[in-house]
Design a protein around this nucleic acid. Structure first.
Lengths: 143, 143
DNA sequence: GTGGCTGCAAACATTTTGCATAACT
DNA sequence: AGTTATGCAAAATGTTTGCAGCCAC
């Protein structure tokens, strides 16, 4: 469904270009939580090409339009991008296998209620990152 | 109490040096959530001096020893360091005034239970960053 | 045709690393 | 004395910016 990108871009007076479409498709393809580098590779795999600078600009635009989201997972390295989904979610980062799991649940809604109720804080975006060891790696450690 | 630093360092076979003491004192001084640059300035203010590379190495060591913690607050820029406190806590980042509030509560413990119970995930460190507008800025917007 | 968008290259900021010297134990 | 930690400089990494030409509108 290419419609959403085109519609959103035009609605805000931005142009629909080949690079933007390519990035959009690349984001759809993968399973989220990709670095800029990975997205560039993904774009290349589709047969397109995009310059790093343009990629950053495109992602920044997507974020501004609410089409994508970036999160810096607790650790050191680079920002990771994913398509924006309506549901609130949180990340489980396994320190051992490096896997990043993506969970949707009521947890984030509970957090929102808590900070709004107890602290009078208008929560806009909630980023929850849990570092630890996933179920698989715990088993592996025992065996 | 300078004892904690000395004790912890020696307990792990590390040396007690002037730069390490200076960084430790600088961390005690400020109110947490400082960038490497700010810590360096803080060290200089005490009358000491430390090279950036050493500062990074020192902070990495402190983290390894459980004396300090780093967090990349959702946004763009650099990592922010603070002393490790036993209590779990979370951050409220106001997008308007830029203030970073630091809250302790049962919330983080609840999160831990949730991911361990429902997802079999052994939570090691939980980083919760809430972006939004603080109570003060909400009032300011109304008036 | 025109102004926004892209690609290229260079700048920037943050963090890491190699190595000779200094300092803790 | 024997190492470990430091400072300096240089590199690595991730991201941003200036600008001439191109392309969607």
């Amino acid at each position: 469904m290419e419609g959403e990108l085109d519609r959103t871009l035009r609605a805000h007076g931005h142009r629909v270009t080949q690079p933007r479409r390519a990035v959009w498709r690349a984001l759809q393809a993968g399973s989220g939580h990709r670095t800029v580098d990975e997205i560039a590779t993904s774009v290349a795999a589709i047969g397109d090409e995009i310059d790093t600078a343009s990629l950053y600009r495109t992602l920044a635009l997507f974020e501004e339009l609410g089409l994508a989201r970036v999160s810096r997972l607790g650790d050191r390295d680079a920002g990771r991008w994913e398509l924006a989904h309506p549901d609130e979610h949180f990340h489980l980062v396994c320190q051992q296998c490096g896997d990043v799991d993506h969970h949707v649940g009521t947890l984030v809604a509970q957090i929102r209620e808590h900070v709004e109720g107890d602290h009078g804080f208008a929560a806009d975006q909630i980023e929850l990152v849990v570092n630890g060891r996933c179920a698989g790696c715990q088993q592996a450690a025992v065996s």
